[in-house]
Write a protein that binds this DNA or RNA. Structure first.
Length: 593
DNA sequence: CGAATTATGATTGAGGTG
DNA sequence: CACCTCAATCATAATTCG
């Protein structure tokens, strides 16, 4: 009946080595900026797994740095380790001063992007005068490395040590550095009170203590030695690790700069001058990413703070996402018709079988996998034994599984996962949008997509700006959430350059393009890493520039559902964010000329 | 061999309790 | 403040099926 309560004490933990590695992850570093095509070293031979020096150079690191990082990691095999090494170097070189003011009812943004020494500068407005690491010869670097290592050995987080070294100068003594960090620490502790925001009554906090001897897997863990040790280590790490380098605050309620239901909430923001469009850009990823990820993404995208929005305010299913963009935020309007807002409205057939003790009105996030038939059958058996409502412990267990797997009631005591066409509808896509490919592929494509109504609400401000239509660079297009959103807004698509690796997703977008009788051009490119400055310049010359650069880079190394490779931004796929950043910069640069 | 099926926790943060 | 409960989460990998 209950979930398998096993694996107590079966895992062995090796925290000692892991802690060291995590310290090496700085949580803030400034991006390198790009010049013209001369940064692209096309003569580089790719290694067997397709990762080359130019791949890392493309992320914005200098060539020297890349070579050194590859050497340190014993060749090009371990790209994740190389990226982390590079990010550490970046933190050593420079860390952005995180000045930030929060005005009442709005936010102000202060940019602090400096150009670097690498290959041409892309922002003429900024000078190099406050940049100190103009020639990072090996001796300087290794000296700084030595200091960093010593500080880390003393127990300081690498990120703070790197910041201290940057602030105090390269040849500051260890004493000076520790003093600096001590002062910074106390300042931050005193700074740790800023929290307001009203709360909504969406989830009534009905918390009961439940003591279930059978299905209770938790109580027993508390007396487990490994478990205790692990929790202790976690607490220690939490105290030690970068106290407040991650300044990202996820708002509650998660409504960003406003939702259609509350147009009276007024927000204002000030963007840095160099990102006031065009070109407009729109970047998306999961809101609940590992610590520090959003502040890093933000530091690359001109220090613009993400707009966190949960799609449950636009549809019957939740979808917590962060959006960084330079779009205006006033006079937004929702896509019509307004989609069903509750489970019963979206799936009327379920109403008949819905038990009174299932209090859900919204579905959770639509993911890429569905519950197994064995699980739903176990749940059916757990509930079917009772004439009336099952006991509270059974209810708890069933509800937990329902929430985890987004199950709905489709018969007496019968639960089932959603069908692909239901997911299409909940995400705002037309019926049969993904039809024609395998069920597994459909679920994957849909699970990785935008919620169309949510994105369209943000993009709606483009309509009056581009009455004649727009030219779009769509990165990581997937099944075409951005295209569908723009089309449903009635914004003509003059040209869409779509970059997408998956062939099945590409076909879906292509089919949609034809079936909606688009007048414009749809151009496909299959690899973001191959979209270099030359290619961009060629495209921009052909179409007169891009009005919008839109895309959400891979989230699978950030998403909470990933048990195996939740490696953060440095992960194999999620690191493609740096290509979004690179391409956006190159577009801005080329269009600026 | 592609498609379908199934099992597989950890990391966060909010909020309660003593 | 220490400690706990509760909740959410754009997935991966191994295996089986047809």
């Amino acid at each position: 009946m209950g979930p398998n309560a096993d694996n107590e004490g079966s895992d062995s933990f090796d925290w000692d080595t892991e802690d060291e590695q995590e310290f090496m992850l700085p949580s803030s570093a400034s991006p390198r900026c790009f010049g013209n095509g001369n940064v692209v070293c096309s003569d580089e031979a790719s290694s067997s797994n397709g990762i080359s020096i130019s791949h890392f150079v493309g992320m914005g690191f200098s060539r020297d740095m890349v070579c050194k990082a590859i050497d340190e990691n014993g060749g090009e095999g371990n790209s994740t380790a190389i990226v982390e090494t590079l990010l550490t170097y970046s933190a050593l070189e420079k860390s952005p001063s995180e000045t930030e003011h929060v005005a009442c009812g709005g936010q102000q943004f202060v940019s602090d992007i400096s150009s670097s020494e690498s290959a041409g500068d892309f922002l003429d407005d900024f000078s190099d005068e406050d940049y100190l690491g103009s020639e990072d010869n090996d001796e300087t670097l290794s000296e700084m490395d030595k200091n960093l290592k010593q500080l880390v050995d003393m127990g300081y987080p690498a990120a703070e040590a790197a910041i201290a070294m940057e602030r105090c100068g390269q040849d500051a003594s260890i004493d000076v550095l520790t003093d600096f960090m001590c002062a910074a620490q106390t300042a931050k502790e005193a700074d740790a009170q800023l929290e307001e925001l009203p709360r909504f009554g969406f989830n009534e906090g009905e918390r009961r203590n439940y003591f279930d001897g059978d299905s209770g897997k938790k109580k027993r863990f508390y007396s487990d030695n490994n478990w205790e040790r692990k929790r202790q280590k976690q607490r220690e790490r939490r105290r030690n690790s970068d106290e407040e380098v991650d300044s990202t605050i996820i708002p509650n309620p998660m409504i960003g700069f406003g939702i259609p239901a509350e147009p009276w909430r007024r927000h204002q923001r000030t963007l840095p001058n160099e990102v006031i469009g065009p070109p407009y850009f729109y970047y998306e990823n999961v809101a609940l990413a590992p610590k520090g990820v959003w502040s890093r993404i933000s530091s690359y995208l001109y220090e613009i703070k993400p707009e966190f929005v949960d799609s449950k305010y636009f549809s019957a299913a939740a979808r917590k996402r962060g959006y960084i963009h330079n779009l205006p935020i006033s006079n937004r309007y929702p896509l019509l018709p307004i989609p069903p807002q509750t489970i019963h409205e979206a799936l009327p057939m379920t109403k008949k079988w819905w038990p009174s003790w299932d209090s859900r009105t919204k579905l959770n996030c639509l993911q890429t996998c569905l519950a197994s038939a064995k699980l739903t059958d176990r749940l059916r058996k757990a509930v079917a034994d009772y004439h009336n409502d099952p006991p509270i412990t059974i209810q708890k267990y069933v509800m937990e599984q329902c929430r985890k797997w987004n199950l709905v009631w489709v018969g007496k005591n019968k639960l089932a996962p959603l069908e692909p066409d239901e997911i299409e509808s909940l995400l705002g896509f037309p019926k049969n949008h993904t039809r024609g490919i395998s069920r597994t592929e459909r679920l994957k494509g849909l699970g990785n997509s935008f919620q169309v109504d949510t994105v369209a609400y943000h993009l709606s401000v483009l309509k009056e700006m581009f009455p004649g239509g727009i030219t779009v660079l769509s990165l990581f297009s997937g099944i075409g959430g951005a295209e569908v959103a723009l089309h449903r807004l009635g914004i003509p698509l003059k040209t869409v350059v779509s970059v997408e690796k998956s062939e099945t997703s590409t076909n879906i977008l292509h089919n949609w393009w034809q079936s909606t009788h688009q007048k414009g051009n749809l151009i496909h490119i299959d690899d973001v890493t191959k979209l270099d400055a030359d290619k961009l310049e060629q495209l921009i010359n052909s179409f007169g520039g891009f009005d919008l650069v839109i895309g959400g880079s891979p989230c699978n190394n950030l998403a909470g559902s990933n048990r195996h490779t939740r490696d953060g931004l440095a992960g194999e796929h999620s690191s493609l964010f740096y290509d979004y950043f690179r391409i956006l910069n190159q577009v801005k640069l080329i269009m600026g000329n």
